[in-house]
C-alpha cells in the first residue's frame, strides 16, 4: 500500500474520527465530505467528531481463506459493528474465540496492527474490536 494512502486516514484509523453534518447534525463513520441527507447544504459544514466505538455485533463471519496480510491470523472473526452512536463499521474481533462470537455481542475498540508492507515496510495500525 502506498504510505500516504494509509497516512492520511490515520485520524479515523487510530481514533475513530468521523464527521458530523453541520446542517442536520447527523454523524458519520467513516468520515464523509457530503451529508447524504443534506447534500449541498452540508458542503463545507462537515465537522470532525470522535466516536467512542462501543457497540454490538450486527453480523459476522469467521474467515478461513484470508488475504496475504491476514494469513497468519486465520481463522479470524470479521464483523459489522453498530456503535452506540448509531453508525456502523467493519472490523476484526479479537480476544474472542470464533465459537463465542454472536449477533448482538457487546464490543469495544482496541488498537492493533492491521497490516504491514512486508518485513521492511511500514506497519499500519488501527482499530479492531474486542468483547466488552
Amino acid at each position: 500500500m502506498a504510505i500516504p494512502r494509509f497516512w492520511r486516514e490515520i485520524p479515523s484509523r487510530y481514533n475513530l474520527i468521523g464527521t458530523e453534518c453541520g446542517n442536520c447534525g447527523k454523524r458519520y463513520f467513516p468520515p464523509r465530505i457530503i451529508c447524504p441527507e443534506c447534500h449541498r447544504k452540508s458542503v463545507g459544514k462537515m465537522k470532525d467528531v470522535k466516536f467512542q466505538g462501543k457497540g454490538e455485533v450486527v453480523t459476522y463471519s469467521i474467515i478461513h481463506h484470508a488475504p496475504k496480510a491476514y494469513e497468519m491470523q486465520v481463522p479470524y472473526i470479521i464483523a459489522i459493528i453498530e456503535f452506540e452512536e448509531g453508525v456502523r463499521a467493519t472490523g476484526q474481533i479479537i480476544d474472542c474465540e470464533p465459537e463465542d462470537v454472536e449477533v448482538g455481542m457487546r464490543v469495544e475498540p482496541a488498537f492493533r496492527k492491521i497490516g504491514e508492507d512486508g518485513k521492511s515496510g511500514v506497519i499500519y495500525y488501527g482499530y479492531k474490536f474486542k468483547p466488552a
Binding site: 467513516p30 453480523t59 463471519s61 481463506h65 479470524y76 470479521i78 463499521a89 449477533v103 497490516g115 488501527g126
Partner: peptide, 24 residues
Amino acid sequence: QEWESVFGATFAGLHAMIARRHMH
C-alpha cells in the same frame, strides 16, 4: 478498500456476513 477490505473483510467474508444476518 479503505473501510472494509483493509480490515481483513474478504469478498466471501462480506457475503458471509449477509448470509449470517439473513439466517439470524
